[in-house]
Design a protein around this nucleic acid. Sequence first.
DNA 1: ATAATAGTGGGCGGTTGTGGGGGAAAGTGG
DNA 2: CCACTTTCCCCCACAACCGCCCACTATTAT
Lengths: 142, 142
Amino acid sequence: MLLGEFVHVLDSKGRVTVPAKFRAELGTSLVVTRGIDRCLAVYPISKWEQLAGQVSELPLTDRQARAFRRLLFASAADVSPDGQGRILIPPPLREYAHLDGEVVVAGLSTHIELWDTEAWEGERERIEGMDPEINGWAVLGI
Amino acid sequence: MLLGEFVHVLDSKGRVTVPAKFRAELGTSLVVTRGIDRCLAVYPISKWEQLAGQVSELPLTDRQARAFRRLLFASAADVSPDGQGRILIPPPLREYAHLDGEVVVAGLSTHIELWDTEAWEGERERIEGMDPEINGWAVLGI
DNA sequence: ATAATAGTGGGCGGTTGTGGGGGAAAGTGG
DNA sequence: CCACTTTCCCCCACAACCGCCCACTATTAT
């Protein structure tokens, strides 16, 4: 289970260290791609394959679906951590998520996300400022 | 799994370098043909044969099917990369996809596509401006 | 206190992408 | 059938980049 929030640096070569706690669970074959809300999503290969399968089943006759498919696959990159546990983020993805310098690496149970530090702050404030009744807890029905 | 987005040049001789990451998976025998939406599709031979088989089974009595068949096969070319990993794009296909100078080479899991740079930008904008609820993410159930 | 692990920086060699030359092959016209 | 032109393909060369590796520091565990 991928949990926690870490601040790591994206160095001058475009590399980010995967938190040591995540490495065993993520394995050595990962896929980085665009996430929703200008972040990057990093999946272990098994989870990615499941996702890719679903996207491949979208109808080719739908213009919108074709574009989505192109974007998702073309934005993706399979990466494996180097000897120090770092992964290289391809330039187009760095730009998409505005990553440079300090980056937030967050565990989301089944995958991890990479965020620009300010964007992450903004996201957190949005949630914290909300009433628990409507900020997500409510959907659990508890 | 063919993933990623690369900007390469179509040189004065009409050649494009296949990204090194794709070469092993694509093999040495490829087929280039028309893709949907004014791009070119490049398939490894095995995938192409499967596709060609399906198209060949379309009924010859159907006017639409005959036209499609002619277009697909007549536009196709089997190519193999030279010593530097480049493939030669036949002039009619270059024109169809408006390729010259900088070209986007995109991996789409099972095949790759070649795009004119501006057209590719347009494809991306089509998705980026949209709400995640309707742009394709929703089907993933995530 | 010592050792091990984690995160960061950077050097260096091999690979990749691009341009171009020269010979072979194929197409064209006499 | 032959000569000529054009296209194609193989090869070499070079510059930029990528990825592997080593080194240093800080933190954690023993």
